[in-house]
Design a protein around this nucleic acid. Structure first.
Lengths: 232, 232
DNA sequence: ACAAAAGTGTTGGAGATACACCCATGA
DNA sequence: TCATGGGTGTATCTCCAACACTTTTGT
């Protein structure tokens, strides 16, 4: 039995919620056909003396160059036949020493901001891609199940665990925060009520600074302070 | 690397919240000393072609004889040194073919009612025991971390996921439901407000039946219907 | 009759919802 | 001056918290 980690890395750019997928090529440099190309979540085997969360962080670092990504374990997927699907055999037999082995994977979701810098977008020359979560293709193995649960978990934890800020720039506007919530929760929110609620949260602190270079009234900037989470 | 499942089985009898621990004996039938005795969570290696949840169910069935226990995966524990502790070496070297192996464990929590029948309380002649969660001893490996997270998860999900009913008899009174909540959440609740809330829940349905054989006014009985969870 | 838990309503405050207009900036 | 999003307050309603007495049964 092999152990891997898989990462569902969510990114937000102000417009849409995307996640990072990598291409599984089995063409081996030969002619590229549709069928050779399958998308999958970034993942890798856990190394012998490596903690699970270190493995997840390593996978992301190798792929995006980022090393301070918010990462959270959310489920282990271990169906005995999760790597037995027909569609996955070519890739397994190309890249795995023991393609028949059962693989149990520990899944993490990660959150990054795509506002300023677009991290990676592909460190391996076009092999990685940000895909809108509303428009995901069929993925390798059980990766569609994994992304479904990741999304459900993200939705559940967005409000209760203050994790939304991980997908915003360090200085953000209330509009950005609100559209993030609207897109993740997939419903429209009332601007005034939303702002009323935010103002009651100690951990969203206003800066003496405004947006610049926008073609409308510049917005107040805020930052997130994790230390102020309901303390005196 | 080995893969196991561990189960944190919670039981409620109307009085206290307990969990099932097994004794790890290393005395091998010789004289029994304090140090030979350590408590641990029930767990076992996952078999080659066995689904994770099947493995968890098997562990519980072997230990309690119950086979319809509510079981939910909540976390994977995989620190590289979680089975390297000094205190755990005797047991590992007695019972494990490869005691040095790293073990990654997928943890489940389970819920049972101890009202009517007390399931097991020990199928292996005194090797299993229900222990009050407020009074847990030092456990083997990282099992204290596992029980801590299990308890935190139970608390979080008690109200949101309708899982409390798994720890009550099929027909229960509002008093039983309330004390369960009070004990799990560790706070006193107002009787009238609690009942008001319950009456708003479609999935708690009153029966045409009352408690019998109690030395006070008999209470209305209710049952839980999972199908009526906010539907028309 | 007594002990023991069941059962029941009201009030005040806090948070949620719904809703429309003026403001500051860059082009 | 215009287009664009920023920023603000009030009324209503629902939900939560606090609180005490009468009822039914078994002994």
């Amino acid at each position: 039995m092999d152990i891997s980690v898989d990462c569902v890395l969510f990114g937000f750019d102000g417009e849409s919620l995307t996640l990072l997928l990598i291409e599984q090529r089995t063409d081996q440099g030969g002619p590229l056909s549709e069928e050779d190309l399958q998308m999958a979540l970034p993942g890798d085997f856990v190394m012998e003396h490596e903690a699970l969360e270190d493995a997840a962080a390593r996978v992301l670092e190798e792929l995006t160059g980022l090393d301070n990504v918010y990462l959270k374990q959310f489920h282990a997927f271990g169906s005995p036949d999760r790597v037995k699907g027909l569609k996955d055999q070519p890739w397994l037999h190309t890249f795995r020493a023991q393609p028949e082995n059962r693989v149990i994977t520990i899944a993490y979701f990660g959150l990054v901001s795509l506002h300023d810098h677009v991290p990676c977008a592909s460190s391996f020359a076009g092999h990685a891609e940000w895909v809108d979560v509303g428009n995901l293709p069929d993925l390798a193995f059980d990766h569609n199940d994994i992304t479904d649960l990741a999304l459900a978990t993200l939705r559940e934890q967005l409000e209760s665990k203050h994790i939304g800020f991980e997908m915003l720039p360090k200085k953000f506007t209330l509009r950005q925060l609100q559209s993030l919530h609207e897109i993740v929760l997939d419903k429209k929110l009332d601007k005034r009520n939303f702002r009323k609620n935010v103002k009651r949260m100690d951990h969203v602190v206003p800066l003496n600074e405004k947006e610049r270079g926008v073609l409308h009234k510049p917005a107040q900037l805020f930052r997130f302070d994790a230390n102020l989470t309901s303390e005196s």
